[in-house]
Design a protein around this nucleic acid. Structure first.
Lengths: 359, 359
DNA sequence: AGCCTTGCCGAAACCGGTTTCGGCGCGCAA
DNA sequence: TTGCGCGCCGAAACCGGTTTCGGCAAGGCT
């Protein structure tokens, strides 16, 4: 690779000397200043390649304030909803970042306060030029901080006030709409919806979509059927039990998150119900547990690797000065049709009778 | 918090001026140089607190070469064995790191070559003072690189040549020994072992432990029973099917990894066998899928959060110059006894007959 | 021919720290 | 009193880059 003559890092000084130029000239040539002759610029670039010169980002940073680094802070105290998604997501971000010689600074926080403090620390110490904000709240405290300190950021997900925000999101609304259509197409008439925590912005979006889709199909939206929330195995199980033991149980349930949906399997089993037959389940996320559940969980799968790549891309461009208006993307979730949904084998009334019988 | 008089970062210059000292003196006072009067040092420290001064690690780094940053590179191309563990692990590392104002630089690599290149890049650009190496191979290329470049590192897991290595590991040998004892205690006489990939050092360790424990109990170690490997759901399922369809099937199986063990559930179900009764399963890792499997998977759980914390601790001390001899730790895995193991309900012969009948 | 641009580069200051070097002032022994 | 050593700090160089400023030479214009 690099002609490692002196077995030491090659600095801008070496490069300049080897060209008979000064540091300043070399720096300007490499950074695209207009007062450098094109021929010189080329000569410098070539020689930089030959010597394998790579500027020390920290040295650059002390003058420029930027260090080519993406900041990413995860919450660890919330229901383990983010557990499965982290690995793929990190891989995506990292891949895009390193392709431009950027780097990734990761931290975690165990509370809302710590979350803000951590961001603040990273900003103060200039450990990150900008941040990717996963799991955006409807009203996000991080956004306020970053705006105040004029730190670039990109949302993964949308938030209530999107003015001057760059963001990337998966269209939960399209997925929910499609889920309703699919179930109605199977013949389901009584469909329940178990939403995510209302603190998250995506919950509002998905709920609105479900309600609109039900209305569009001329189905009533019984509050009893659409007001539950669950984001974990246990709460998902509880929500399912609650729904199935109601007077008029649904024949199909849409979950806003897979983690809750797998909880439904436990509930169904305890009632002696077969998922995909007596009760249909469709969900959203695409976690591995769903793939290996029995029957496989029909879900709208999120490509977290892709999301990470795009978010890194958007943030880098944002840091480089692009306006937020051009930095917004909505990607679709992809349906993974497996065995957890299908035509209803009995009506709501029959289901209620059957459940009363087993109880 | 800090008296933010000028709403700008407070630099060492501000601090020095406010004390009537020079930059150099302040720096030496803060960094424990012996040629500073103790009274002065105290005065400087106090004032630094008051002003909320925090040195810019990048600025320090350009002179010292160190930047208080831990490097961590994950492989993404291997069987998704590391997926579930990442979140907790990161949280542990990050928590310990931030408590000393260190930071965490994360990257990913999709191949062995990329893995080495990524490490090399991070070293060259001085993005990390040292590395934590997860999933150590029996003969690890990263170790060679880091030795060559004199970069500090800590292994998560052990490797074949441990001279001058700092490391932290979970005692897979104790877990495997305990698993054998437990099964033998239940009355199992024909016990199989499905190991991890032989490229990993832990596989050798766990295998040796199982064989030794079996021998200690006076049980024969049939090569047919202990030579399989699996680290994914599908391969775990295949291995289980292979074992159960052999002439003398085991009544209990020990898996080196949970991911393989949950595959056994699929296999058992297809044979109409109840796990924890006709066939017992014990495993190792503690992934969430195991907890919600039916019956719950008995496993030796690894505390990844703790591992992360300890590894960060060891690496920081290593970077600060502590010799490797004092930086070695072995922690136990904790048994999570659930429903997947118990006394055998039939002998190997009876099991073979039963399987032949259903087939 | 003289003048004013303009293109292009060198020189030097600067960023925020660390580290080396030298010297002042004091106490102590001769 | 002088001499010496030592504790303590200031001054300045340094790390590896970036950015500002100024000046030289070539070219166009009158």
């Amino acid at each position: 690779m690099a002609a490692q003559t002196a077995r030491k890092r090659v600095t801008i000084r070496h490069l300049a000397d080897s060209l008979g130029l000064t540091k300043g000239t070399v720096s300007r040539a490499l950074n695209g200043y207009p007062d450098i002759a094109e021929a010189t610029r080329l000569r410098v670039r070539r020689q930089a390649d030959v010597l394998g010169y790579r500027p020390l980002s920290q040295a650059q940073g002390i003058r420029t304030g930027r260090t080519r680094s993406i900041g990413l802070v995860f919450r660890t105290d919330l229901p383990n909803a983010q557990r499965p998604f982290i690995a793929d997501f990190l891989a995506g971000v990292s891949r895009r970042a390193s392709s431009d010689n950027w780097t990734l600074t990761v931290a975690t926080a165990a509370s809302e306060d710590e979350l803000i403090d951590t961001h603040r620390r990273l900003i103060e110490e200039r450990k990150a030029d900008g941040f990717i904000l996963p799991r955006t709240d409807a009203n996000d405290a991080r956004v306020a901080l970053l705006r105040e300190t004029e730190t670039p950021f990109v949302l993964f997900g949308r938030t209530s006030d999107l003015t001057d925000c760059a963001w990337f999101d998966i269209s939960g609304e399209d997925a929910m709409t499609s889920a309703v259509d699919r179930l109605v197409g199977y013949g389901h008439r009584r469909i329940a919806f178990v939403n995510g925590d209302s603190r998250y912005n995506f919950s509002r979006i998905r709920r609105d979509a479900v309600l609109a889709a039900l209305a569009a199909k001329g189905l009533p939206t019984d509050p009893q059927l659409v007001d539950l929330t669950a984001m974990t195995h246990d709460t998902g199980r509880a929500a399912t039990e609650h729904l199935l033991t109601s007077r008029a149980p649904p024949t199909a349930i849409i979950f806003a998150t897979d983690l809750a949906a797998v909880g439904a399997y436990s509930a169904a089993k305890s009632f002696g119900l077969k998922i995909g037959q007596e009760v249909s389940v469709i969900s959203y996320d695409g976690i591995p547990e769903g793939e290996y559940a029995d029957p496989g969980l029909t879900t709208y799968r999120v490509d977290n690797h892709h999301a990470g790549r795009r978010l890194a891309e958007l943030l880098i461009r944002r840091v480089r000065g692009e306006p937020t208006e051009t930095l917004r993307e909505l990607a679709p979730a992809k349906l993974a049709a497996r065995g957890s949904d299908g035509p209803p084998t009995m009506s709501s009334e029959q289901l209620a009778d059957r459940l009363r019988a087993t109880a």
